[in-house]
């Protein structure tokens, strides 16, 4: 589903290279974890996959369902089914959460040539998905992410993900700032979306989240490259020994 080939990318503004020859392939149905120390390029990778303009791809390619997505803007990628759950969801005062959800769902449907949702259908979907994630109706009446606690923001991201039904879900440090109860709710939400035709990329610094969202593959990112890949036992190895051994072996 996702194939990243020899990707090189830099910060557009100052030319700093962050991703340096990254190769990764994720199949439909797979949950891939990307781990790595701070500054290894994890968040940058998530932004590049979703099309943020602040980064420039200088070499290599990103194929999604066999086609290059490098020329697509973030909205076009989203309509094709790529979803990024942000590490820091953005507060937008003046945009009502419900209005945002409705516009996003309907714009994606329009882009795919599907009919817009009726209001009752939309309301029913939001109500059901919010209940699963223990999101109170009052929260949905506030402006988008404004005044949400860290945990509420992360749950709101998963709510958006479950409503938008993407094919490729990228979770950027979704565990940061969550207590154990919130972590379980978020993990349940993600696990509910696991299916044979959907892929999930979990970006995380710690192994903790992977106890709840068990990955099929684990990849270690360091200095903009995947330096080691393995199965879920690799995550436990990292937890026990830290990144130093693997980085040392790869150097």
């Amino acid at each position: 589903m996702l194939e990243i080939k020899n990707l090189h990318a830099r910060i557009a503004e100052d030319g700093t290279e962050i991703i340096r020859g990254l190769n990764l392939s994720v199949k439909a149905g797979e949950v891939a974890a990307i781990m790595g120390p701070n500054g290894s390029g994890k968040s940058t990778l998530s932004y590049i996959l979703s099309g943020r303009e602040d980064y420039e791809v200088t070499e290599g390619d990103i194929l999604y369902d066999g086609e290059s997505i490098l020329e697509l803007d973030p909205a076009e990628r989203a309509a094709k089914g790529i979803f990024l759950a942000f590490q820091y969801p953005v507060e937008i005062p003046g945009v009502a959460t419900m209005q945002f959800l409705k516009v996003a769902m309907n714009e994606q449907r329009k882009a795919r040539g599907e009919a817009e949702l009726t209001t009752p259908d939309f309301m029913r979907r939001v109500k059901e998905a919010a209940a699963e994630l223990k999101i109170a109706p009052e929260m949905l009446r506030r402006p988008l992410n404004v005044g949400f606690s860290g945990g509420e923001k992360k749950r709101a991201e998963i709510l958006q993900m479950s409503l938008l039904e993407p094919k490729l879900c990228i979770l950027d440090e979704t565990d940061s700032g969550l207590d154990i109860d919130a972590l379980k709710i978020v993990a349940d939400g993600v696990n509910a979306l696991r299916s044979p035709d959907r892929a999930v990329v979990v970006i995380t610094h710690y192994q903790r989240l992977l106890d709840y969202i068990v990955p099929d593959t684990v990849h270690v990112l360091y200095k903009g490259q995947v330096i080691k890949s393995g199965d879920k036992t690799l995550a436990h190895e990292l937890e026990a020994n830290g990144y130093a051994d693997i980085i040392g072996a790869a150097a």
């Binding site: 909205a75 989203a78 942000f86 937008i92 003046g94 945009v95 714009e107 882009a111 958006q160 938008l164």
Partner: peptide, 29 residues
Amino acid sequence: DHTQLFYLMARGIPENKARAMLVNAFVAE
């Protein structure tokens, strides 16, 4: 705000519509 614009677009809202939402938000408050 470019971060806000990216966030809306990352949810599938086309750029012109996302911009209009942000302009509207500025006065809707």
